[in-house]
Every structure is written in C-alpha cells, then in structure tokens.
Amino acid sequence: MQAVEFAPWNDPQQKPLIRFQNVTKRFGDFVAIDDLSLDIYEQEFFALLGPSGCGKTTMMRMLGGFETPTEGRIELAGQDIGPVPPNKRAVNMMFQSYALFPHLSIWDNIAFGLRRDRKSKEEIDRRVEEMLKLTRLEKFARRQPHQISGGQRQRVALARSLAKAPKLLLLDEPLGALDKKLRQDTQFELMDIQETTGTTFVIVTHDQEEAMTVASRVAVMDEGRLIQVETPARIYETPNSVYVADFIGDVNIIEGQTTAAGDDRYSIRWSDSLPPLSATSEKPFSDGQTCHLAIRPEKVTITTQKPDGADNVVQGNVLDIAYLGNLSTYHVELPTGTIIKAQTANTRRIARRNITWEDPVWLSWTATAGVMLAE
C-alpha cells in the first residue's frame, strides 16, 4: 500500500490550526515582525529558520502568549488567542535550557504540570508512565536531572511538555546544547515522537540542517518577514531568491545578463573572456536582465579531461579541497578569478583519488542544473 503524502497545505478544504493574519510586532521603533501572514496545519512539524534577530523567536513567543501582536491577529483552531493568557492556551513551550526542577525526580518533573491541573492520581500515574515509555526514560524515573545526560534531560523536558497533551508544542532551539552526533540522533527521535503523538510541533532553529531534517515545511525568515515557505526539498532545489539559496546549504551564485534562447532556455553572459552559460527557467526573463544562477556544488562535475557534449564547461585550477569524510568539495579558481565549488562523493579510498591541489580541471553542468533567480 502506498503511503498517502502528507500535504494539507495543498488542500483548500483543510483549515489551518494556526493562522497569522497580517501580524506586526514592534518594540519601540524596532519592527520585529513585519505584516506577516502564515498558515500552519495540524500534525505539521513546522520549522522557523533564519539568522539571529530575524523574528523567529518573537513569533514563537506570540504563539506562547509571552508577547502580544502590535497589529493583526493570531488564531489557534479558529479562535483569536490574543486575549488568552499563556496558561489557558492549548500550547506548551519547551525552552532551550529545558528548565527542569533540579530537586525533583524525573518522574515528578513530568508530573508537575498535571498536578497543577489537579488531575487524579490514577490519571497522573498513567500519563507519566506513558510519557516515560514514549521518551524511553522508564529506568531513569527515580533519578534527578543532574544524574542523567544532556540528551536524557532534553527528553525529560519533551516528556513534560507533552504530558498535558497540548494541541501545539513550541520548541525553541531545543537541540542547541547537544553535541553534533547526539543532535542528529535526537532529531530522528523528535520526528518519531511527533508522528506517534500527532501533536503539531513548531521549532525555532538557526541550524539549516536541523530544519531540513525534521520539518514537513520550513519558513525561511529575514528581518521580520517570510522569504519562502516550502517543503525542505523545494526550498533546496527551487529557492525563490539568492538569500534563500545562499542560506540553505552550499551554493555557487553566478551573476550575468540573460538572452532568450528558445523554449524556457536562456543564454547568460557572465564574463568578457568566457563563453555564455546555458540555463533553463520556467519563470520568464527579459533580454539584458540581470540574473543570478544558483548551482549546488553536487550538481557540478569535476574531471581532469575536457568532457564532450556538456551544456556548460569551464576550466580552472584546484585552489582548495575540503575533505568531509563522505564528500570532498573542490574550490576551483577560473582564469577570471571566480571560484566555483564542485562536490564529489568519496567512494574510493584517499590514495586512489586523482585530483589534488593546483591541478588543472574541467567543471561541467547541465542547463537544468541551476536555478535562475531575479533577486
């Protein structure tokens, strides 16, 4: 049986769980959020991604009830949540510091919110056991936070946040304190837990890799505005601007002037001494228009011999090699001084590879490899 694709944002019948409608947030003269509209759907794992100061944490704090919009409204399940205090919202927030109670056991940390809500002892016992099982912490229930690892503390904070079965869980840089290996493992755990509980997760992160791994959709932000909201694959393959292309992953950006060359095909003049490049774009460009061609390094082929029949071929010398274990990225300097990155998978052992520093090499790519961007 084929899995049904989860894409409620493409279904006009679906009503969003969260709706930002023309929301602006000012702190004095500073505009943190600028006339922003966004829909987030039930059971989404949604990532707000951007550099420090882009407004992503302000958006999250408005959802949590710690800030109120200056203009516009925010709805949760069709209700305007502006006037609703934080403790009355079906929203829970997991902070970067985890904010666990050091003197309470793991069990009591998870039970804390349920006790405050005056739940019965049976209900509390059942729910805490469920959460311990979900986060694989059963054997640590009687320990205190200082007696477990950072990754386990992170899971306690998650269990406590989910114990009250919120409609929406907000995660503010939740994996920032973990080392890289543990962070990657925990990303998959988060995804499994989100899928199991069906809770809508909204995560704030400045880590592109994290957003691309966990999220159903990513909102790339800059200076209080949404630049692009799309699935990770579409953000990576079809960025809508140089800003997004450059912010997500590694990319070569080549600037030039376009001339139409047939169906969706363009010739890009980018150098006085090198032939024009060939590229395709569904979006129209006018003759003489400045365009930026964004090409991912893995789509550029590097060879020691001139390739036959490639759409785009340039020659240069290897300036630098970044060896990343599974991948190598070659920085190749062209005669014009432009540097283009090409990436190859390291399927052979290091002694068998045939390209090294200062070698003359050929770079080639297809006309469809890059994305033509107007700005």
Score class of each variant (00 low, 15 high):
L36A: 06
S364E: 11
F285S: 03
A219C: 09
D172A: 01
E71S: 14
P360V: 06
Q184G: 10
N240H: 01
Q147H: 11
V229E: 14
L178V: 05
K25M: 04
L162N: 05
F30L: 10
F46Q: 08
A310S: 13
R126D: 05
Y330I: 09
Y266R: 02
E189R: 02
L137W: 00
T336A: 04
N87Q: 05
P174T: 11
V156W: 00
G262C: 14
E67V: 06
H206T: 13
G176H: 12
V218G: 04
T347C: 04
D35A: 09
V300H: 04
I203S: 10
A32Q: 03
N22V: 02
K167L: 09
R296E: 03
W9Q: 14
M93I: 15
L182G: 12
G224K: 09
T280K: 10
L363S: 02
T304L: 12
Y330V: 06
R127L: 00
L38Q: 06
C291K: 02
L48G: 02
L178C: 08
A374S: 15
I253F: 03
C54K: 00
A159F: 13
V202S: 07
E195T: 15
A261M: 09
E189S: 05
Y98V: 05
P16I: 01
R353I: 14
I81A: 07
T58A: 04
Q13C: 12
V156R: 02
A90K: 08
A3P: 01
Q208K: 11
T57K: 06
T368K: 07
K167E: 08
L49V: 06
F285A: 02
A345E: 15
P335E: 13
Y41H: 15
R153C: 04
S273D: 12
D35C: 04
D192E: 15
T238F: 09
R136F: 03
V23Q: 05
